[in-house]
Computed example of a mutant assay.
Amino acid sequence: MNEALREHRPERVIHLAAQAGVRYSLENPHAYVESNVVAFTNILEACRHHKVEHLTYASTSSVYGANTRMPFSEPESVNHPLQFYAATKKANELMAHSYSHLFRLPTTGLRFFTVYGPWGRPDMALFLFTKRTLAGEPIPVFNHGNHTRDFTYVDDIVEGVIRASDDIAAPNPEWNSDTPDPATSNAPYRIFNIGNNNPVKLSAYIEAIEDALGKQAIKELLPLQLGDVPDTYADSTKLEHAVGYKPATPFKEGVANFVAWYRDYYDV
């Protein structure tokens, strides 16, 4: 990291790399410490020493954990994560604040809500369901398809990330230590939700995949999995007010775009 920043002298850094995924964190928590805690420390140190103007990084909606008040909004407490993955991403937010406070490094954390689209991760539902449905294999449908997720299309995420990076974080002049807002600070630090503002039931998401494929899925209905939350729903109004972010892709259109990409890429 130090060599890269020393050579290229970037004004902004956008950090999206991580060990992601809820379920794998149950099996290999050490991978999450190495990628999400140690590596993020390396990012912060490099940004500090090379005078980066603004660090924008990916957090996750998973930090809301046991919260049930919908929609999720940034001033709410996120002190009850339900998986180790979420705990490491919450740690990133806290680590970023300490560097914003100590070294005046402007930082913006973006809590991603279920990103999907072309080139998506193979372990995510859209990729897995598409692959198995085309192969005639059953798909695992946890919580009997009653999950709701604020599925956010990748193009909308990219737009929000770029807009946030271009708008350098600054101290909140109204921040009050007697009633502290956890999403802002008197340091150049802030946290935003970045979501679609439109939760969709998993069963409806699967129907969109079936429609795009022209093929019915074989559904293996399963109970809620350990570490999963039943619902997510982003209140992204703060990001909209700050940088004009407004998601524009309906989930059926986004799913169809992914299926078209998948068929072309894998020639199926």
Rank of each mutant, 00 (worst) to 15 (best):
I206R: 10
Y153I: 12
S61W: 14
G120W: 11
E253C: 02
N146W: 06
P106G: 07
L110S: 08
N176I: 14
Y189P: 14
A234T: 01
L221M: 11
L213F: 06
D167T: 12
V141E: 09
A96W: 02
N2S: 01
V200R: 11
T237Q: 10
A234D: 02
Y189V: 14
K215W: 04
T108D: 05
D155S: 11
E11S: 12
I157D: 00
G65T: 09
D150L: 14
H50S: 05
E174C: 08
A170K: 15
L224F: 09
R9C: 00
H50A: 03
W119C: 03
E159S: 15
Q19C: 13
L105P: 07
F258T: 07
S98F: 00
M95P: 05
S98L: 02
Q225I: 03
L55D: 02
G136L: 13
V33I: 12
L16R: 06
M1E: 11
V161W: 03
E53C: 01
N176W: 15
A256N: 02
H8F: 15
N79V: 03
V22D: 09
S62K: 13
D155F: 04
G117T: 05
Q216W: 06
Y64E: 08
F84E: 14
A39F: 09
P250I: 03
V255H: 02
A87M: 14
Q216A: 13
V38I: 15
K215Q: 15
A217P: 06
R163L: 15
E74C: 07
N196W: 04
F127Q: 11
P173F: 08
S177W: 01
D166I: 01
V141A: 10
Y32Q: 07
A4R: 02
V255E: 04
S77H: 11
L224G: 07
N92H: 09
P180D: 04
P188K: 06
Y116S: 00
A217H: 13
V243T: 10
T249E: 12
S236N: 14
L44G: 05
L134H: 04
P140M: 10
D181T: 01
H50Q: 13
E137K: 05
E11T: 05
Q216Y: 07
P173R: 11
D123K: 05
A96G: 01
V268F: 13
L134A: 06
N143F: 07
G160M: 10
A187L: 07
Y32W: 11
I14W: 14
L213H: 09
M70S: 01
K131Q: 10
A256S: 08
Y153W: 15
P223S: 03
A170Y: 11
I168M: 01
A18F: 07
I194S: 06
N92E: 14
G65I: 07
H54T: 08
V38H: 15
N197S: 05
A217V: 09
V33C: 01
L126W: 07
M124F: 12
E45Y: 02
